[in-house]
């Protein structure tokens, strides 16, 4: 028995009600056991004097005693709080330059809230900030939340965050997303790849390597094929890929890609005819 056990029992009595404290045999036992160690120091003696009447059937106002006891025991427990003692730790390197961009809450608050909470309306807030070319995304905190936003439960939000992340921070962002990329992963890797796809044909080799790798998860392969829509030169590669033994979802994605290009070509022809 220690003071924290006694604290737990006292709290439990308050949860279930002091009205039935006489029937609380666990509390009774805890008080008795605490009595055995109460002579250790003056504070424990005082606590025992305070809680002892709770075990006495003739005590009238047990609720007041219970409240006083909890107040006192909680205060003592607060003074006994300890700091953590982790066993194996790794140092976090802080090598960033001193000129970090920090904006006022009035400038970044709405976007950070939109990126870190749920609910409706937040997509529009982020989109408006992006379209108005606001400097919000230069703020170092927003950058961090923007990255986390790529994995937002709301997929459109995730794609928007990916687009902003890659378009605002260019190659650095792409390299960051490609670092430790888990080709066997699912949603998280797909979102990363969707974000990278905003870099367009520059990352074509990366898409190809993922699409053709049979060890890559089917969802990532599909996302890679989708990303390859940026360049119609990929047709022959995809045709060859469709000849191989591939998952049905990937075959469908390739078909959709061909259909997408066909429509694109038709639209271009239509535009050209209109221009003539």
């Amino acid at each position: 028995m220690n003071i924290f056990d006694l604290q737990e029992r006292l709290h439990n009595s308050a949860f279930v009600g002091a009205g039935i404290i006489g029937e609380d045999f666990r509390l009774k036992k805890a008080i008795d056991e605490f009595g055995e160690i109460s002579s250790k120091n003056a504070v424990f003696t005082k606590i025992y004097q305070l809680v002892k009447p709770l075990n006495d059937d003739s005590t009238e106002d047990k609720k007041k005693i219970l409240l006083d006891a909890i107040t006192f025991v909680d205060a003592v427990c607060a003074t006994l709080a300890v700091t953590a003692k982790p066993e194996e730790t790794t140092e976090i390197e802080q090598n960033a330059e001193d000129n970090v961009v920090m904006l006022r809450r009035s400038e970044v608050g709405a976007v950070i809230t939109a990126l870190t909470t749920g609910g409706s309306g937040r997509y529009q807030i982020v989109k408006n900030a992006y379209e108005s070319e606001s400097k919000v995304f230069e703020d170092y905190r927003v950058r961090e939340y923007l990255y986390n936003g790529i994995f937002d439960q709301y997929s459109e939000m995730g794609i928007l965050c990916g687009e902003i992340f890659v378009k605002k921070f260019g190659k650095k962002a792409v390299e960051f997303l490609k670092k430790d990329f888990d080709k066997k992963g699912r949603t998280e890797s797909v979102r990363k790849l969707q974000a990278i796809s905003f870099a367009g044909a520059e990352e074509n080799d990366f898409y190809k390597s993922l699409a053709s790798d049979s060890e890559t998860s089917a969802s990532v392969r599909c996302a890679a094929v989708n990303a390859m829509r940026c360049d119609r030169e990929n047709r022959s590669f995809l045709e060859a890929l469709s000849e191989e033994k591939i998952p049905a979802t990937l075959a469908t994605e390739i078909k959709y890609t061909f259909a997408f290009w066909k429509r694109q070509e038709e639209e271009e022809k239509k535009k050209q005819a209109e221009n003539k």
């Binding site: 700091t83 953590a84 976090i92 090598n95 960033a96 170092y140 905190r141 961090e144």
Partner: peptide, 28 residues
């Protein structure tokens, strides 16, 4: 950091914090 928390270290004292590791990496 350990596998659960990020700690601020003051001498021999380790205090668990809520701060994100990635955020700390972005500052000097």
């Amino acid at each position: 950091r350990d596998d659960k928390n990020v700690y601020i270290v003051c001498g021999d004292t380790y205090i668990a914090t809520d701060v994100s590791e990635n955020m700390l990496k972005k500052i000097p």
